[in-house]
């Protein structure tokens, strides 16, 4: 049995590895529980009658789910209307941002024109102007245009994005020169090259921008709060605030409204996690 071959460095015993993994899973699960805790409580409160919520000690599981609160959130809280508004506004902003960014990024990446670099810096400079700084003149502008309480007012100010332009320009710049030359020989004009080659090749970045834009638009708070005063154009975030102020003691209703407001965007996260992470980290990590 004995050999003279020196034994390779010993791996840890099997039980040691199992213990390490178990500890890791335990830590992960505890962390997940803490992060999901608020969500869990929101969901169970939304399914309990108010009396039960006020009982002491609180019941932290649901025995008899009451879906009535969701129905009421749609009925008395107009949440259906708010959701539609949020979808309309977010989709329009997403489509607009992708469009304006594709166009501008194409110019910066593929066209030669005077003051190109200077203009690019000017674009980036808009990143340094926080929306919160300019709300007063912007409110005045929207008011002058008669766009208070309107979809235009919620959408138009956000149709251009320096971040998106930057992101797509970087993506366009990775299109190989040979491919641009081949396209020129093949007879593509700029529009053809943009739509048939540059955008399809950059679809990862375009996807990241789209998901990112939708998320930002859906979660907006300050601006829709300022310019919407009636249900007709209110987004779900502001609707949620209205629901809270009107029904402060009906916790099940408020929690049901919260779940409704959060659900679409959480679904988006699960479906498009890759794109979202790409969008979020492209500012921090190259590519």
């Amino acid at each position: 049995m004995a050999t003279n071959v020196p034994a390779p460095r010993r791996r840890p015993f099997r039980w040691q590895r199992v213990a390490t993994e178990a500890a890791q899973y335990l830590a992960l699960t505890v962390a997940a529980a803490v992060i999901l805790g608020p969500v869990y409580i929101t969901v169970i409160y939304s399914l309990q009658p108010v009396e039960k919520i006020f009982s002491y000690p609180p019941q932290l599981y649901v025995t008899d789910p009451q879906w009535d609160s969701y129905k009421r959130a749609f009925e008395t809280g107009s949440l259906g209307r708010y959701l539609i508004n949020s979808f309309v506004v977010s989709l329009a902003i997403t489509a607009g941002q992708v469009t304006t960014s594709v166009l501008a990024a194409y110019a910066f990446a593929f066209l030669r024109f005077p003051f190109r670099n200077l203009l690019f810096v000017v674009f980036l400079a808009t990143l340094m102007v926080p929306w919160e700084v300019t709300i007063i003149p912007n409110y005045q502008t929207i008011s002058t245009l008669g766009w208070l309480d309107s979809y235009q007012g919620l959408i138009v100010p956000f149709l251009a994005t320096a971040f998106g332009t930057f992101l797509l320009r970087q993506a366009f710049l990775t299109v190989p020169r040979d491919l641009r030359d081949a396209a020129a020989m093949d007879g593509y004009g700029h529009i053809g090259f943009m739509l048939q080659v540059a955008v399809p090749l950059s679809r990862a970045a375009v996807g990241a921008l789209a998901v990112f834009s939708f998320l930002m638009a859906w979660n907006q708070y300050l601006w829709p709060l300022l310019i919407t005063n009636e249900d007709e154009h209110r987004t779900v975030q502001i609707g949620l605030k209205a629901l809270v102020s009107a029904n402060i003691d009906e916790f099940n209703l408020v929690m049901a409204g919260t779940v409704i407001a959060a659900a679409p965007i959480l679904a988006l996260l699960v479906l498009f996690q890759k794109q979202l992470i790409r969008g979020l980290t492209s500012g921090a990590i190259k590519g």
Binding site: P38, V39, N219, V244, V254, M255, L268, L269, L280
Partner: peptide, 14 residues
């Protein structure tokens, strides 16, 4: 990563 998709309004009400 889930809270990245949570809006400030939703988080606040929770």
């Amino acid at each position: 990563s889930s809270t990245v998709a949570t809006s400030v309004a939703v988080a606040s009400v929770m």
